[in-house]
Simulated scan of single mutants.
Amino acid sequence: MLDTTPLIIAVDRFADRLRSAPQSRLQRGAAAEGLAAARELARRAQRIEAPDREPYVLPDAGLFTVGDQLAVAGRDLALALETAPSAELDEAVHWVNEAAARAFA
Rank of each mutant, 00 (worst) to 15 (best):
P6Q: 13
G29P: 03
L77V: 07
A78W: 11
A99F: 01
F14R: 07
A103G: 09
A87P: 04
R39P: 05
Q27M: 14
E54R: 15
A30G: 01
P51W: 00
R28G: 10
E88A: 02
R13E: 13
P55E: 01
E54L: 14
V72P: 00
N97T: 08
A10T: 05
P59H: 11
D12W: 03
R28C: 04
A50Q: 15
L26T: 00
A71G: 11
H94G: 06
P51N: 08
A21Q: 06
D12M: 05
A92F: 06
A50K: 15
E91P: 06
T65H: 13
Q69E: 11
R25I: 12
R53T: 14
D68Y: 13
A21E: 03
Q46L: 04
R19H: 10
Q46A: 09
G74N: 06
G34W: 00
A36E: 06
P59V: 13
I9S: 07
S86E: 15
A32V: 13
R19L: 06
P59E: 15
H94I: 04
G67C: 07
R75C: 05
A100K: 05
A103P: 00
E91D: 15
R43F: 01
E98F: 05
E91C: 02
L77E: 02
A71F: 12
T65R: 12
A37N: 01
A100F: 00
D12I: 03
P55T: 03
E88P: 02
L35W: 06
R13Q: 11
L58A: 10
A32I: 12
V57Q: 14
I48H: 06
A71W: 11
E91L: 03
D90K: 12
L58C: 10
A71N: 11
P85H: 15
A10Y: 01
D60N: 09
L81H: 03
I9R: 10
L81P: 00
A105D: 13
G62V: 08
E49H: 06
A80G: 05
E54W: 06
V57I: 14
